[in-house]
Design a protein around this nucleic acid. Structure first.
Lengths: 225, 225
DNA sequence: TCAAAAGTGTTAGATTTACACCCATGA
DNA sequence: TCATGGGTGTAAATCTAACACTTTTGA
């Protein structure tokens, strides 16, 4: 059966992950210095090779788990990157994925062990190979996704204040939003439910904590921010 | 240098093309019966393997040129598809692309030589492997693209009537549009320019022919349909 | 002469935007 | 007591959607 396929050249396939986090009012991604050749020491996305016995999505999930220790992260494919010489060593086609994580759930020790850092999305350094391009496309897709589906919560703690949510959207859109209009729209979405809990960290007065209710969303899935 | 890479398994990478055309008021794509194993005889997208010396975009362009004889088609990546067993023969990761072609520019003899047919987008048969999934995603991305960028013209002759353009958008959106509102919006877009030419095929009275003016669009690139 | 497609404006309703003050509390 | 962030409603402006008739001409 390999007769037909054999005429064509095989290549390595890797996955590279753009991992978004939101902290101190800023949207950030994880990057680290490459610890292997080629490109050792250059800033780079975290990635890995696709194994023969796993799908590309499984590979991305494995790489994400390896780095963060977290499962079931929100993750979407960004696309395949396949210039002939994108990898200086060998022909490698890479499939980029972006993921959303809640920074507070990520063990900072684990982060340091892997030598990765949170960098502000607007201050990304020159990255290895075509990784800057991947980040750009991931950012565009992520913004588009957050504006049409309620996944922004994946970047926040499971309980969050409306101010946190608003600041998140402001960071993603890169523009300020009107507080009253924002809250008016949130109120119409019954799946963003107010709890009895009060956050006292963010202000003296205290702010109501909200949570995303998936069950209600499934019944009434309309979202626009 | 291959020492590091060598530990990982290489795979075949192919491209598969969803080629959209618009004819007789219907949105269609090109599919053919597979002429090779595995899956011989099944309906399938047209595709090919990525060679060692070409980028994935180049591979897609080559495959498109091979099939249509046309260069510089509008083409965008749909994404990578990489289940372990998506190809019954060997591990093959495939990158899907969609393209827009103007049906009248495609030599029908060439089409027949390749054994491909235009099938209505709403009547796609069961396709080989995960190709139906590719078509679905391509369609979604294409609709999104057509609503925010003036690329619908790539599915029409270079001179077209507003009725043709409206029917195209109706086919893409799957819903009827109001003629007066549609034409009002078109009039605001100066890059859709009226010519002195009249189409007499579509009606007795004759309809004005329009063309897309790229230069004007670049100066004033705002589009929404 | 009539069937068939081309072409053209107005209005009501819905949505979006702009905007400012009082409240509760810890320091 | 005061500085800080939390919380609330209204009105003007803009955008969207609904709607019907006249024109031209080839058959």
């Amino acid at each position: 059966m390999t007769g037909f396929y054999g005429e064509h050249s095989k290549v390595w396939v890797s996955v590279d992950c753009i991992i978004f986090g939101f902290d101190e009012g800023k949207l950030r991604i994880l990057v680290g210095k490459r610890q292997m050749d080629p490109g050792r020491g250059e800033w780079s996305l975290y990635g890995g090779f696709v194994r023969g016995d796993e799908s590309i999505d499984d590979a991305a999930n494995r790489v994400l788990y390896d780095l963060t220790g977290l499962r079931n992260l929100y993750m979407r494919q960004v696309g395949a990157f396949g210039s002939v010489d994108r990898d200086p060593g060998e022909r490698v086609i890479s499939i980029a994925y972006y993921a959303l994580i809640s920074v507070n759930e990520y063990d900072d020790q684990l982060r340091k062990q892997h030598g990765v850092e949170w960098v502000n999305i607007d201050e990304i350094p020159r990255l290895y190979s075509d990784h800057n391009e991947m980040v750009l496309k991931a950012r565009k897709l992520m913004r588009q996704k957050l504006s049409t589906e309620p996944v922004g919560f994946r970047l926040l703690p499971s309980l969050f204040t409306l101010t946190q949510l608003q600041h998140l959207y402001e960071a993603v859109y890169g523009e300020e939003l009107d507080k009253r209009n924002f809250r008016k729209r949130i109120k119409e979405m019954n799946f963003i439910e107010k709890t009895e809990l009060i956050d006292k960290k963010g202000s003296k007065r205290g702010a109501a904590l909200y949570r995303f209710n998936k069950r209600i969303y499934n019944e009434e899935p309309s979202f626009k921010l």
